[in-house]
């Protein structure tokens, strides 16, 4: 609608604003603006190498030559029936196309076979529910049975509060399967993606034989707000970034997403008996 003075009405202005497509992507780390159409295939910032958060399926497509999913049907038990929680679950299922917050299966990376799990941060913040724990536990068990290494990409806000103490027990449950996989002499690569915090950090994320991360990923146990509230301390800006963890000795390496596939296939080949496989 155009006013008598020839200028658009406020409603018209708002409509035009809303019609402008959201064309820019802003790097949350360095603030660099990227024209969405120009974002590279790895979805990384060209300035600071931050990797924008990926859904589970996108990560698998980027990494695997082929991938056979496992346990897609596993989902939260009916006993968790709080309507608010069910609504969150439904929304998460729609957004991710998954029943639960982790996609797992047997895949190959440049021909190297591995059991691969990817947590999806969009699924109630990648929280660790009973079904999430079950899928990860079964992945380790399948890997033990098939004599395969495990690569697990974590992205999680920690325990799933809506499932209470049973969520806490998932830390122990998955650890049990990590222990058996490890006792079989098999390789576990933990790959910490942005963000990995809380109970996931305090269990399987930190149990890898090798622990990798991506530039600037947030990794920690206690959340910033918990620290601020509980002990009135103001943490420095970068205190839980991958670079800080590397400096303090808790990561083997920070790998740019562009190098993820090549690095993982190199590591896998080194655990397959050496040069003859390379």
């Amino acid at each position: 609608m155009i006013n008598n003075d020839g200028k658009p009405s406020p409603q018209e202005l708002q409509k035009r604003m809303d019609d402008i497509p959201d064309v820019w992507l802003k790097c949350p780390i360095c603030g660099h603006a990227i024209y969405k159409k120009h974002i590279n295939e790895y979805r990384t910032c060209p300035e600071c190498h931050y990797g924008f958060r990926l859904g589970a399926k996108a990560r698998i497509e980027m990494l695997c030559d082929d991938f056979k999913p496992l346990n897609l049907e596993v989902k939260a038990a009916d006993k968790f029936d709080d309507p608010k929680y069910l609504e969150k679950l439904n929304k998460a299922r729609q957004v991710t196309g998954l029943n639960e917050g982790v996609l797992s299966g047997i895949g190959s990376i440049n021909g190297h076979k591995a059991a691969i799990g990817v947590m999806d941060w969009r699924f109630i913040m990648g929280s660790l529910g009973t079904a999430t724990g079950e899928i990860i536990a079964r992945l380790f068990e399948k890997a033990t049975e098939l004599n395969l290494p495990v690569i697990l990409f974590t992205a999680s806000g920690g325990a799933r509060m809506q499932e209470g103490i049973e969520s806490l027990m998932q830390m122990a449950k998955v650890s049990e399967t990590v222990a058996k996989h490890s006792q079989a002499g098999l390789l576990y690569i933990s790959y910490l993606c942005d963000p990995t915090t809380g109970g996931v950090t305090a269990s399987f994320a930190m149990q890898g034989d090798l622990i990798f991360s991506e530039p600037h990923s947030l990794i920690g146990f206690a959340g910033r707000r918990v620290i601020e509230r509980t002990i009135q301390q103001n943490p420095p800006k970068d205190f839980q970034r991958a670079e800080t963890l590397l400096k303090h000795g808790f990561l083997d390496a920070i790998i740019k997403r562009e190098d993820m596939k090549a690095t993982l296939s190199k590591v896998l080949s080194l655990h397959e008996g050496g040069d003859q496989n390379d």
């Binding site: 049990e176 950090t201 305090a202 920690g220 206690a222 959340g223 002990i231 205190f239």
Partner: peptide, 26 residues
């Protein structure tokens, strides 16, 4: 609960809990 502060994060609060679970269980 485990002590939540910056120093605890720097010294691997999450890592040590993860190892007590993994190694304790075995």
């Amino acid at each position: 609960g485990a002590y939540p502060d910056v120093e605890a994060e720097y010294h691997g609060q999450g890592y040590l809990i993860s190892q007590l679970i993994l190694q304790g269980m075995q």
